[in-house]
Design a protein around this nucleic acid. Structure first.
Lengths: 115, 115
DNA sequence: CAGTATCCTCAAAGATACTG
DNA sequence: CAGTATCTTTGAGGATACTG
């Protein structure tokens, strides 16, 4: 993550901060299909540690990209969902996917492979 | 930069690697208007060190995103230019700009901010 | 001009263990 | 289940000085 004054030098750089950190874009894509729970995200982001996932989610929440909804049930349930701002990132993700597919030699369906 | 095996897990993640490192997107955008020389890039990327700029350019070259053209003149002249693959990143940059402009509160004309 | 060569900092991210 | 608490690594990126 860049220091705040750096992020504000231009809209592209600011957006790069969101898009650049390792898991954010994957999380946004994951959440594009609906609310997800902590453990679901943990499983779809193979290799992420709970510490990192929690930190990323907290950061995404602070950026108003996801909302955290906590239900006081037993067992406890927490769900994360994209905000409008988060959903506005989806065309960008799609564009990244397109570029990756077209120029980086990896197909477009790796994130959520059909079971 | 992610280790290679990580970059291949999915097209989005692979693209994130390009788009995520601090200066690449700025450089690509800079080069979108035509070939640029080392010093020109150094000046437009305010704050970048020659070490980092050289490294970034070498990396972009290795990724076939830019071409380096060296002219054996005196004084020496080197120009960097986008490849087709590099140019294919421009819609992505545009999309980042759009998002940044619309949601991150920094305009698309930072070079000439409204007085 | 177009870079290298060194050295250094700092924060992102991982591993592991534990908890309300 | 949904995290927190520590500790550690690692490497991107910066500062500065120098060169073909």
């Amino acid at each position: 993550m860049l220091p705040v004054h750096e992020t504000q030098t231009c809209s592209v750089a600011a957006c790069a901060e969101i898009v650049g950190s390792k898991w954010t874009v994957l999380l946004v894509h994951d959440l594009s299909e609906g609310p997800r729970r902590f453990t679901e995200l943990e499983h779809s982001c193979v290799g992420i540690s709970p510490r990192t996932l929690a930190e990323r989610l907290r950061w995404l929440e602070s950026e108003d990209i996801v909302v955290r909804r906590s239900y006081a049930e037993s067992p406890p349930r927490v769900e994360y969902e994209l905000t409008d701002k988060g959903a506005a990132l989806l065309p960008l993700v799609a564009e990244m996917r397109r570029f990756g597919h077209e120029w980086l030699g990896c197909g477009p369906h790796e994130v959520n492979p059909p079971a």
